[in-house]
Amino acid sequence: MDRKTEEDQFSQNDAILSSALKQKMAYLNDLSESITKGNDLKVYELIDPNRFATEANGETLTETKPDHYGLASDLNAQLSHHLSDQLIDYLGKTYPFFYYHEYELGKFHIYFGNWWDHRLFGELDPINVRFNFSEEAYGMLAKSFQLELENKRVNDDEMRQLGEENEKLTQLIEDQDKRDQKKEAVRKQLKENEEKSPMPWEAGKVKEAHQQLTDALLELTNIDEQATNARPKIKENENKILALSKEETILNLEKQNIRASFGSFDAFNDSNDHLYAKYIQNLTAESQVKDDE
């Protein structure tokens, strides 16, 4: 290689490098400027230009667009905090039943409703405009919607079972007098049995009767013991039933709210799946209104 070609190659390389750096600087400038101006639409384009083009604007890309987000991704928390401001305003109108708590910079818990003991329902991801619902919380709601079609509730079986158990326990307590009378009778029979001096050929029979009576007495005292422990057990079951009805009350409120805003659970899910596109379109519409002014 002669010296000239070598120099050319070097200068060409420098030109590429310099242009690439300029592109990056332009990217960071753009990002910085969009943030100062509050142009979240542009920020979203800069964060993920490919998703922005395809998902929000419905473009079909022949080649992927350059994505420089890696340059700013260490500022995720701050960016997320910045973007949450407008996003939560928007969600306040479209998902009026969700409440957010920024538990650390840029990270948001979602609460369903502001009623007593509302459920922590997942997290909000402002950078990706996405709900990350807790599997457990969402799963229970989905199940509740599902069971509703069969006229059932999530906790029906368990509540019925606890209710029946409490009825039985109450009965045990109420039957104490009857059992006391029975025990008295059995004891009397036992005494009579023991006072017998049977003929040898009847001894087996008398012994057998004695065993039966002893067993019957034992059985009755066992039930007595259950009855003695019944009250705390009933209270415990009542508390369980209360917790389960609370859960049902909460699920009911969640379902009511979803119906009021979306009509159905399917429509709610569909809206969640297209949240990014809908939000970007909303920002676009808003920026056009601003331009027109």
Partner: peptide
């Protein structure tokens, strides 16, 4: 206790009122 408040929440909802946090 929390269960006392839960009880008010459930009873309110049964009567179409919502106990708010």
């Amino acid at each position: 206790s929390e269960s006392i408040m839960d009880e008010l929440f459930v009873k309110s909802a049964d009567n179409q009122f919502i106990l708010m946090a």
